[in-house]
Design a protein around this nucleic acid. Sequence first.
DNA 1: CTGGTGTGGTACTGACCGGTAACATATATG
DNA 2: CATATATGTTACCGGTCAGTACCACACCAG
Lengths: 205, 205
Amino acid sequence: MKPQATSNTEEKTKSSPRERIVATASELFYRHGIRAVGVEAIAEAAGTNKMTLYRHFASKDELVAEYLRRLAAEAGLSWEGLARAHPGDPRAQLRGWLAAMQAHVLDTGQRGCALANAAVELPDKDHPARCVIEQFKGDQRSRLVALCAASGVSEPELLADELFLLLEGAHVSAQSLGPQGPASRLVRMGEALIAAHQPSSLAPR
Amino acid sequence: MKPQATSNTEEKTKSSPRERIVATASELFYRHGIRAVGVEAIAEAAGTNKMTLYRHFASKDELVAEYLRRLAAEAGLSWEGLARAHPGDPRAQLRGWLAAMQAHVLDTGQRGCALANAAVELPDKDHPARCVIEQFKGDQRSRLVALCAASGVSEPELLADELFLLLEGAHVSAQSLGPQGPASRLVRMGEALIAAHQPSSLAPR
DNA sequence: CTGGTGTGGTACTGACCGGTAACATATATG
DNA sequence: CATATATGTTACCGGTCAGTACCACACCAG
């Protein structure tokens, strides 16, 4: 049953065609944009052909949805790792999240959040990728809210939304003003926001 | 003998074809995305044809650049109006800017910042629209920095970048989580940030 | 009237798109 | 060996894309 890795010949056959297609599509979609990449180019870059691609995915739109679903799953793993790194310390998890996000934004070659970019490229409300995007973003926000609440800050929802918007802004800003722009100070800004929400400080408004 | 299927002919002929093309392209580009709209559709919706479009614009890319240039010019006018509404009062200009931006983000039918969206759709570095986008975003940030500095806050550049990222995030977030999401509290967040940068308050970090 | 200019209309090119049909191959298992 | 399944190969479909050639018309200036 297993795909018989490295049967004999090409080094490309070390993984299943489906995996290669998804991995290649992820790279191309993120780098050049979803609409800018054709299925033929994906199949060829993945060392296979269009027919095999369409045997695994009903349409390009479904491949796009799978591409985004994988990224959402990766983000989920990242959250779990964060919880494991700082068990029972939501404040440390929050700061660890901030640092990881800044590193991610500043990573050279990054072109913003793939989910958010997809939302820009696919405004059609009934695109199969839309629900993935909306669910992912809602989930990210929920996790932030939970973390802020567990940290015992004042107005946890407001702080979570502030951090959420800050991150979204950093992602999109890095695409126009570069990683040296406002996005480079994400951690410092986030720390200031967290500090401003300490219960000891004055209650805003 | 024109088919006269056009709703109101007199309205279309009162402006030049070039103006109609740019206006129609702006609407379509923003609503459906740049790559999703063909030049034929633009020309037809503008009540003209592809040939006339290409007599005014060397290519679709040039039309895109003009589309973004107009939006940048509009934003410039908005800044001027803000300065005229609150002459000599940078703090009031800053708060007026915040309110205007929240209203703009929450405006139903908005789909984020057209310039930022274009940056997502056109990752190619030598696209004629890229320089328009980068210049525009740099200009917005500079204006914010100047306003913050004139307001006498502590660390004006940091506050400006915080507000800048907050706005960018609100734009992109409204596309995935809707106008009722985190973006709906833009003014409140911004005011809190401004308050936190008051010289009377403790110096951050 | 004449000529230039801007515009509309139609048809076209060549390329690419997403998606499919039909057939050949390979292998693994029964 | 026989069969089933997954994959590779080629050619093709209808449609759309950006961009162009060519001609007709309307108008306005001289």
